[in-house]
Simulated scan of single mutants.
Amino acid sequence: MADLLQGSLGHVVVVGGCGFLGHHIVQQLSHNVETRVSVLDLFTNRNRIDSPRISYYDCDITNLETVREIFAKTKPDVVIHTASPVFSGPQNELMYRVNVVGTDNLLKAAQEYGTRAFVYTSSASAIMGPVGTDIINADERWPVVYGDAQPEYYTTTKVLAEKAVLAANRTPATLLTCAIRPAGIFGEGDVQALPGMLTASRKGQSKFQLGPNNNLFDFTYVGNVAYAHLLAAVALMHTHKLSVAPLDSERVDGEAFFITNDQPVYFWDFARTVWREAGDKVAVDPSKIWILSTSLGLLIAGIMEWIFWIFGKTPNLDRSKVRFSAMSRYYSIDKAKKRLGYEPIVDIEEGIKRGMKDLLRREAEANAQKTDKKGQ
């Protein structure tokens, strides 16, 4: 990664730079002493890095005039757009406004104020059909799925945004765009994957396994995803220096790229590695694991959904999660390897260790703060 960070990327705006992925991108950029960074986020009071080369701006990207004002001031050479609502809950209107309207606003500002490279964080689920349909070694030739054919509205909004970003490529001719499609992000600052698995462990659910555990799944360490975004930005800026357009087989602009750890693992093996790091001894003892069929898991989840619905709550296990944990879902990253020069820099097991260490530390700090408040 040291070679990547040599030389200036000019002025980089990281949208969502105080969030999970965005913060890791800003961290990696902070090592490049020749690059200036501006962070845009709805609230910038968390995950801040103290550096004279990094500036922070509170920004609601659904407000075009606010975005224009900041772009007029910063005039970014590169925009890396990672902002998105969390993938959960009934937030359809919010997802559309942030993912679709917000992305459109950023593209308009980038076109108006001379941005040269625009990298968008899309999603590997862009090609996912009905929940439970296996995805096996999929590549970028697979068609995207959205609208009525897409089971997750979140994914529909990510696809619509990706399509807008790629359509904006070379409009004007000086603006180059691409999309990164990460799969199953986890790591330090994680608020979904690792915390969800830790909650399951503490509820005693780690003793159960749904299905035979023969479904391969891609999980991707967040630092690797951040690295891929920077590789894409470097590649787009390099394209500007070419006297002729790159060959179709070498192009980065106007293209989408799957990003994974290139290390698909069996779903429950990943979960048990997480639980082992959390100190859950039951979860890693095969003699204590109850293996349930997927059909029985769906029945139990359906009953839980009904009971929780009566009390106006959401269960930790629902039918969608059962289907998700039993499907195969892994991707080919050959295109990213060839065109971006991407290779994972942290493997799965090391990523889990880093992510769980960070999660348990954050929990301990939060508990200490609660104790202090009670004692006052």
Rank of each mutant, 00 (worst) to 15 (best):
L5F: 15
S8E: 08
S8Q: 03
L9N: 02
G16K: 02
G16F: 07
G17P: 10
Q27M: 09
H31M: 02
V33A: 12
V33H: 12
E34I: 00
E34G: 01
E34Q: 14
R36I: 07
R36Y: 12
V37W: 15
S38K: 05
I49T: 13
S51T: 11
P52N: 13
S55F: 15
V67S: 10
R68G: 04
E69K: 15
E69L: 10
I70N: 08
I70L: 14
V78T: 13
I80E: 09
A83V: 11
P90W: 01
N92F: 12
N92G: 03
E93G: 03
Y96E: 08
V98K: 04
A110Q: 04
A110F: 11
Y113G: 05
T115S: 15
R116M: 09
Y120C: 00
S122P: 01
P130T: 13
I136K: 12
D139L: 05
W142C: 05
V144F: 13
V144L: 08
Q150R: 10
P151Q: 02
E152L: 12
T155M: 05
V159I: 06
A161G: 12
A164M: 10
V165P: 01
A168T: 06
P172V: 08
L175G: 10
L176Q: 11
L176H: 14
A179T: 03
I185N: 06
G187Q: 01
D190K: 03
V191M: 04
V191P: 00
V191K: 08
T199I: 07
T199C: 03
R202I: 00
Q205G: 04
K207W: 03
G211T: 01
G211I: 00
N213F: 14
L216S: 11
T220P: 03
N224G: 09
V225A: 04
H229K: 04
L230E: 12
A232I: 11
A233L: 05
L236Q: 05
T239D: 15
T239N: 04
A245M: 12
P246E: 03
L247A: 15
D248V: 15
E250L: 03
P264R: 00
V265A: 12
V265S: 14
Y266W: 13
A271F: 14
R272M: 12
E277D: 08
E277G: 01
E277F: 08
E277K: 08
D280L: 02
K281A: 15
K281C: 08
V284C: 09
D285K: 09
S287E: 13
I289P: 04
I289M: 08
W290L: 11
I291D: 02
L292I: 02
L296H: 05
G297D: 01
G302V: 06
M304C: 15
I310Q: 11
I310S: 10
N316H: 10
N316G: 01
D318I: 00
R339Q: 15
G341Y: 05
G341L: 04
E343V: 13
I345K: 14
G351E: 03
I352G: 10
G355F: 08
M356L: 14
M356F: 14
D358H: 14
D372F: 14
K373E: 14
Q376D: 11
